[in-house]
Design a protein around this nucleic acid. Structure first.
Length: 282
DNA sequence: CTCGTCCCCTGGGAGC
DNA sequence: TGCTCCCAGGGGACGA
């Protein structure tokens, strides 16, 4: 499911309710997702207070009061949804769903459920003081929404790459947080062909792409992300940025920039679908 | 190193 | 209605 905007939306929703609260119950209902849960995971988490929630790339980082951090990645189909004790029917908590792999009970009856049908997600623990060196985080590229992200930085990250720019944008070691939807959308906004060699994105082209990435990601965060199949916000509400896609999943539709004469095309790059306008993206 | 391909897994929709 | 096939917001293990 989730790229940077969806993960950031979930993080915000969780932070508003979890920050400062103690985790009083932990129910781990699967031995592993894409990676095994850590040894003694439920016991290590129970009783901890949540200091705050951060995001790095597509990871949600939950800072705990014992110097550990819970890392959560949603993979393709993961979702994290909160419910209140007040939502329960007859006072009993709802029965777990078939893919509810982790259920946290917090003070005041807040329940946080991690659900992931395909189990491509990850939940693990890391030490706070060495967080940046954790194997899942160490190689990640810069955050496109951070203040220093501009065309110069983007060009430096793409220098020497002979692969197509679309594939390079999906490589989390180059730039963090961009996924299949927003790569196509940003390239459309920057009027750049997804097939262009990554190393040719410098100068004015890099400026355009850096701005396009920041704009589309920020707008999608504002819209609460894009709900296609699995994704919902932590509150259970849908995102609505999918109504503003210019090209993603719009093969055959007229290009919103150059009109009915140039339909959006779908091609496959690196076994993943890419959408673009062959007329106005060069 | 870097690049492309395949695979992990389940569910939903299209087509027959 | 029911089957088969294809596809899906990610990412990592391979082999060339």
């Amino acid at each position: 499911m989730p790229e940077l905007p969806e993960v950031e939306t979930v993080r915000r929703g969780l932070a508003a309710r979890m920050t400062g609260r103690r985790i009083v119950a932990v129910e781990q209902r699967a031995p592993a997702l894409r990676l095994p849960f850590p040894e003694g995971f439920a016991e290590r988490l129970a009783g901890r207070r949540v200091l705050g929630l951060r995001r790095r790339a597509k990871y949600i980082l939950v800072d705990l009061d014992d110097g550990w951090v819970m890392l959560m990645h949603l993979g393709m189909s993961g979702r994290i949804v909160m419910t209140d004790a007040g939502d329960a029917v007859g006072g009993a908590p709802p029965a777990p769903g078939p893919h509810d792999h982790l259920i946290l009970g917090l003070e005041d009856g807040l329940r946080v459920v991690f659900n992931d049908a395909r189990r491509f997600g990850v939940v693990t623990l890391a030490r706070a003081e060495t967080l940046a060196d954790h194997p899942l985080l160490a190689a990640l590229g810069p955050e496109p929404l951070n203040p220093g992200f501009d065309g110069v930085l983007l060009a430096a990250r793409l220098a020497g790459r002979r692969t197509a720019i679309k594939a390079a944008l999906l490589d989390q070691r180059r730039i963090a947080g961009v996924g299949n939807i927003y790569a196509s959308e940003a390239l459309f906004r920057a009027r750049l062909s997804p097939r262009r060699k990554a190393a040719t994105i410098r100068g004015a082209r890099a400026d355009r792409l850096a701005l396009a990435l920041r704009a589309v990601l920020a707008e999608a965060v504002e819209a609460g992300g894009s709900s296609l199949r699995d994704y919902v916000q932590a509150s259970g509400e849908l995102g609505y940025f999918q109504h503003r896609f210019a090209v993603y999943d719009r093969a055959g539709a007229p290009c919103p920039r150059c009109g009915a004469g140039a339909p959006i095309r779908r091609i496959v790059q690196g076994a993943r679908a890419t959408f673009f306008c062959p007329r106005c993206q060069r």
